[in-house]
Nucleic acid binder design. Structure first.
Ligand code: FES
Ligand code: FES
Lengths: 144, 144
DNA sequence: AAATTAAAGGATAATTTTGTCCTTTAATAT
DNA sequence: ATATTAAAGGACAAAATTATCCTTTAATTT
């Protein structure tokens, strides 16, 4: 469904959100440990998120990553997915046509687009804030 | 969403179904041309489908691939996807946990499982027969 | 039986994704 | 100012996916 990069991106963002809510800026090591991801690889993904203004980064001592509190409710899962995986999952053809079209639909088009749109809607309506609550309350987890 | 292999597998199966309905057995070259896929790679996928009893294969002159007419309504998209990509898409965690669980859910679990189940249901209820009709009637296409 | 046809299967290669290592840049602390 | 800290970035490596080539097996035709 999502690439490994995207999975890490989502987990990292949620973890940073929880910590930011508690006023903590978090470093790479901390994040990678918490979401059980390879450190150097995670660094690349955090860079991408930062470039896409999904998270903020600060260099130097006591540096690290954070998310602006008021931005947190505005950032949706769809933005993270777009930033890392692109928009193929929202608009792409289920059978790999260059683009999905009503004019020349693939055999699964009618059935696939329904699911794809539901996924799109879900991702567009799910905020990082919202997901961070479940984690902060111990109802959800970032690793096993 | 699906792997390239799986996309080819679905397209190939539908094409074979249409041809089988018209009493034609079809060869690799024919299939690969029709679904615009690399020939040798497609051969591997057809082997997998054959081993999983989704299609039948016949060697030698006038050999090729076919699908039993009465089997065609029973074969669902889910079987093709399972055979090629496994069942991660039906049961897997959206954030890559080894397995999805209610006990220790990831942050997107509640929202993700809804979509995943809808996808599962759609795939389980969509027959190859059904999809082959749209193609035979010129309403859908296997390439552009 | 021999030649021909077409799928099955093994080995190998290209590409993409995932992951690592090391240097550079920018911020803070001494 | 200098040293230290931590992210940014470049180069490289491993693994998985996608793709190709060639040989073998099994069926049909001559
Ligand atoms: S054309 Fe394939 S999903 Fe729309
Ligand atoms: S635990 Fe992640 S989707 Fe269920």
């Amino acid at each position: 469904m999502f690439s490994k990069s995207c999975e890490y991106a989502i987990k990292a963002t949620i973890y940073i959100a929880v910590q930011s809510n508690q006023g903590n800026r978090v470093g790479l090591k901390d994040i990678a440990r918490e979401i059980a991801s390879p450190e150097a690889f995670t660094a690349k993904i955090l860079q991408q998120l930062s470039r896409n203004h999904i998270i903020d980064s600060v260099k130097g001592p006591n540096g690290g990553f954070q998310i602006d509190k008021k931005e947190m409710t505005r950032i949706k899962l769809s933005q993270i997915v777009s930033a890392i995986d692109g928009d193929a999952i929202f608009k792409g053809c289920g059978l790999g046509f260059k683009e999905c079209s009503e004019k020349k639909p693939c055999p699964v088009h009618d059935k696939f687009k329904v699911i794809r749109n539901e996924l799109k809607t879900m991702l567009e309506n799910t905020s990082v804030q919202e997901l961070s609550l479940g984690l902060a309350n111990g109802l959800t987890f970032l690793h096993r």
